[in-house]
Design a protein around this nucleic acid. Structure first.
Length: 247
DNA sequence: GCGACAG
DNA sequence: ATCTTGTCGC
């Protein structure tokens, strides 16, 4: 596990954060189909919070794309770098997620985020932001439609319908299991929408959410529990931080 | 102006 | 995201 602070120059206000998004948005690569699903490696990233303890724990879990078995994993713990503001989620998650990705012993392949990419008020959600900063192909798979609209996809696994911002298709509502609420897939970086949907289907043989997300979610929660244990052990009742044990 | 709003 | 027990079902 690695520890991270808030990066120097990280936006402190919503205005600054939006300006960063407007500046980086142009760097998203949309003309690559991305690696084929079922080959190479796919990495899930997720984050868990304890706002009271000012803790963020991130996990990155690398799966073999063919078998969906984990081949590597890493975690990182840091301070909360930004409040939750709809549309600015990336500023809350990225520093710790990047640290976890950097701690991996192997290349991540395609990164699967818990949230959106292009399906975003300024077309630059978490998956796009993380993709641009790392250069990795990335997609977003979210659990709800945010402010976007969609027609219900067919009831069978694999059915999908456009996720719409007005008339613009920003992603797809995808049924990953028969009769189960769809997930909301969007392109992050260096991947086509069809590719993002195909990857998502390949990652959901059994459950609604991708195996990448499920594994990363379980791991970051565990990392948060352990970090919270450590912190409470080192903090007095007045919040004073005592010295970490030297061993 | 007010409410809704990825995680 | 997080607060949270039991419960219905494969």
């Amino acid at each position: 596990m690695t520890t991270v602070g808030v990066p120097a120059g990280w936006p402190a206000t919503e205005e600054e954060a939006r300006a960063v998004q407007d500046e980086l948005r142009g760097l998203v690569v949309l003309d690559e189909p991305g690696p084929p699903p079922g080959e190479g490696r796919v990495t899930g990233v997720d984050v868990a919070y304890d706002d009271d303890l000012d803790l963020v724990a991130a996990a990155a879990v690398v799966l073999d794309a063919a078998t969906l078995e984990p081949v590597a994993e890493a975690t990182a713990v840091g301070r909360v770098s930004f409040p939750y503001v709809p549309g600015l989620l990336a500023f809350r998650e990225i520093p710790t997620v990047r640290a976890a990705l950097d701690a991996l012993p192997c290349p991540p392949g395609v990164v699967v985020c818990d949230g959106y990419g292009l399906a975003h008020p300024r077309r630059f959600g978490l998956a796009s932001h993380l993709g641009v900063l790392t250069g990795l192909p990335a997609i977003g798979v979210a659990k709800n439609p945010f402010t976007f609209t969609y027609a219900a996809p067919g009831p069978v696994r694999g059915s999908c319908a456009p996720l719409l911002a007005g008339a613009e298709e920003v992603g797809r509502a995808l049924r990953t299991q028969d009769g189960v609420k769809p997930v909301f897939v969007s392109v992050g970086h260096r991947m086509s929408l069809d590719g993002a949907v195909a990857h998502t289907l390949a990652l959901t043989p059994r459950y609604r959410l991708p195996e990448t997300t499920r594994r990363a979610d379980a791991l970051c929660r565990r990392a948060l529990r352990e970090a919270a244990q450590d912190v409470s052990g080192r903090r007095g009742q007045d919040g004073t931080i005592r010295q970490a044990p030297t061993s």
